[in-house]
Simulated scan of single mutants.
Amino acid sequence: MSEFSAVYPTAAPVGVDSTRPSIARVYDAALNGKDNFEVDRAILEQVRAVAPDACELALANRDFLIRVCRFLAREAGIDQFLDLGSGLPTAENTHQVVQRINPDSSVVYVDYDPMVLAHSRALLMGSPRTTIVDADIFRPSEVLTHPEIRLALNFSRPIALFQIGTLHHYLGEDSAALMQTYVDALPKGSYVAIAHFFDPETPAHSTLARNMESVFLQSPMASGVFRTRPQLQSMFANLEMITPGLTLCDNWWPDGPHLTPLSPVRHCIAGGIGRKN
């Protein structure tokens, strides 16, 4: 259970519609969180009907985020982070990981889910180097010109931009162009991290990916696209990929060897980091 759940123990924050599913709350349910409603859990159960281990998509995504944060803060020396579509706070959030390595790191979360905003603001109260901004991450101009973001981050110095577990909820055909807009606005030396639902186009896993996609798209949430390797790679624009490049999230610098084979579901989410030179 997350430490901020007690802020709203019996009621949803103002502005939250508990009858409509939320992307952030479905993820929270997949992570075994407590900040979700029956409508969110129902979607998760529908996906689990075609992929019993579907919750591992969220777990692999979260583990990838944590390893990416450690790499960028420690090895790359980045001290500015723009986390797009941050979702509901849970254990080991971006600011907690990077500020443990460098307490002077600045972190800006961006989301527009009322429940995310309410819980995050409660958690971040009294944290001067961390803030959350209400904006639509699929409207880059809205994010890049936001006065709070411009105040918190110095765009003349390298920034780490995260789209981790977000872009598969963008249904447009121009996801590469959307990311190019973000990349163009970043200073040299910046990094972009992406994790995304993945269709590996293999006999063993492609059907599973498309079955999960079908459930997501036909649910009230109506998003959750599983894109192919070329589609995902195009989102990194002309960035220099950090070894091992675009790969399964579990295979991006794991904390140790895989002593057991990855589950089929874990073959259906990929990620990587690119650097702007």
Rank of each mutant, 00 (worst) to 15 (best):
I43G: 13
E75V: 12
R48P: 06
P52E: 14
S105M: 09
T19N: 05
D17I: 05
V50C: 08
D40F: 04
P89R: 09
F81Q: 13
L59M: 14
T19I: 07
L65V: 05
E38N: 04
A24D: 08
R62I: 02
Q99Y: 02
V14D: 14
V47T: 07
V26R: 07
S22V: 14
S106V: 10
R25K: 09
D35F: 06
L59N: 05
C55Y: 05
C69V: 08
S106H: 15
A29V: 08
D28C: 10
D104M: 02
R20Q: 15
P103S: 11
E75D: 15
D35G: 06
D53T: 10
Y27D: 03
A29P: 02
S22L: 12
P103Y: 04
L44P: 05
T94W: 00
P52K: 11
N61G: 05
T94H: 00
N102G: 03
L88Q: 02
I78R: 11
F64C: 03
L88W: 05
R20G: 11
A11R: 01
R100C: 03
R70V: 02
S106N: 06
A73C: 08
F71T: 10
P21D: 14
L82N: 04
K34I: 09
V16S: 15
A29Q: 11
F64P: 03
A60W: 07
L82H: 09
V26Y: 10
D28F: 09
E56H: 03
A76P: 01
A73L: 04
R100V: 04
S18C: 08
D63I: 01
V98P: 04
A73Q: 05
G15P: 09
L65C: 03
A24H: 01
A11T: 11
L82T: 02
P13Q: 15
T10H: 07
A73V: 01
E38D: 02
F71D: 15
P13K: 01
L65D: 12
D35H: 05
N36C: 12
V98S: 05
V16I: 10
F81D: 12
A58H: 07
D79A: 14
L44D: 11
D28Q: 10
P21G: 03
E75F: 03
S18V: 09
S22Q: 11
D53H: 02
R67P: 04
A54F: 10
K34P: 00
A60T: 12
L44C: 09
V16R: 15
A60V: 11
I43R: 11
D17S: 07
D83A: 01
A49I: 06
D53P: 04
L88S: 02
V68E: 08
L57T: 04
A11G: 11
R41T: 01
L84V: 02
L65R: 00
D79T: 12
F64H: 03
P52C: 03
L31Q: 10
H95A: 00
L72N: 06
F37S: 10
P21N: 14
V97K: 01
T19L: 07
D104T: 08
T94V: 00
S86D: 08
L84G: 01
G15I: 11
R20M: 06
L72F: 03
